[in-house]
Design a protein around this nucleic acid. Structure first.
Lengths: 203, 203
DNA sequence: TTGTCATGTGACAATCTTGTCATTTTCTTG
DNA sequence: CAAGAAAATGACAAGATTGTCACATGACAA
């Protein structure tokens, strides 16, 4: 949590600092990011920084929170929109919306990917928290089991992990290389393979 | 390539340095690993180090090469052993052998995983080279297509990537958390899902 | 105008890092 | 044994990093 002194700042200055943080954390992993760079970009003094934030973790958390807010505004309502859609329809839709969001907020998106790459204690805690969010997905799979769409013996948690892993890997490659041409096609391809692997045999 | 002065060293000293490098690179990513730590562990002076190697990349490459040799001695013959086995049988066998190798050489194994996590230019080049090795796997899939075991429209390259990604993710988790109880079971579970997704419908 | 108080500042200490180089030590060979 | 070659050494330069702290500044109220 930023200190009270930070809250007191003008919106303009707060934004300047936030943007500087995004700039840094979207180019270097948390453990490699430098406060020096942030204060240089934000044009504040070293002393000020420590008057606003306790340390690097503090500003990172602040930034992540802000970004999450922004993402929540755009996404997170896919599930409610089509209550009748099956798991894979919803999942693909979510992917596409995520893609759209990442295209309009490339920096925020890069922050997220770099977070995935980090291996500091601190970041691992955050990742664990994020993983909680995946539970709702496995609930969807369970529902489709009851509907008779998915084999009952399938480990839904495992499937969610698989999809998440493959998804992340795909985004990561895109992020690193910049080529994303048939990314969506590849994504759907992968999802279809898994769907085929867990779908209940038609009979 | 290490300098000639390094080659001239006694086997004992070479091993001492190699072991020190393994110790460091199995605990920190390439970009974070410190030469200081290596020379301290190996008990050589700073000057000596630079008389043996050009820089950090140099010793890393040397170490990776040695590790690869050691792994090649143990693995890499799975495919030839059962020329009649189908792709998934071979793949699972490979995984199991790899697991065994990693258990008898945990440090080498950690080096490999940390390499996967790094994002420096240098390491990316190495990763690209390693990826070449995956081609032989997609050949196996192609063969199984011809055998009528796998749907002809499947993108074999994509399947290999999926398996590789999932595999890595599994190993990584194990690496981080230390719990590996039902790892093999989970692995087979995942592989079976993909197999089900690309297998030709029985008819 | 003056006193108070929140805020801004950058020099500083304390740690790191890599790569170099003049010097010393050890080895080898005539 | 003695001279010349090869190897080992660690101090050093030059560059980072984070967090602290004594002080400067400026706003606001009495």
């Amino acid at each position: 949590m930023p200190k009270k002194t930070f809250e007191n700042l003008s919106d303009e200055k707060k934004k300047r600092i936030f943007d500087a943080a995004v700039q840094e954390f979207s180019n270097r992993r948390f453990s490699e990011a430098s406060i020096n760079q942030i204060i240089k970009t934000a044009e504040i003094s070293r002393g000020s920084f420590y008057q606003y934030f306790h340390n690097k973790e503090d500003i990172y958390l602040y930034m992540i929170t802000e970004i999450s807010k922004s993402k929540m505004d755009v996404m997170g309502r896919t599930e409610e929109q089509n209550p009748e859609a099956d798991f894979f329809e919803i999942y693909i839709k979510m992917f596409q919306e995520g893609l759209q969001w990442s295209r309009s907020n490339p920096d925020y998106y890069r922050v997220g990917l770099l977070m995935e790459l980090d291996d500091s204690r601190f970041i691992h805690k955050l990742q664990a928290m994020a993983a909680e969010g995946l539970k709702s997905l496995s609930n969807l799979i369970e529902r489709d089991k009851r509907r008779g769409l998915i084999k009952p013996e399938v480990d839904s948690q495992l499937v969610v992990e698989m999809l998440y892993t493959l998804n992340m890997n795909l985004l990561m490659k895109d992020f690193m290389s910049g080529l994303e041409e048939n990314m969506e096609k590849r994504f759907i391809n992968m999802v279809e393979i898994i769907r085929g692997g867990i779908a209940r045999d038609k009979s």
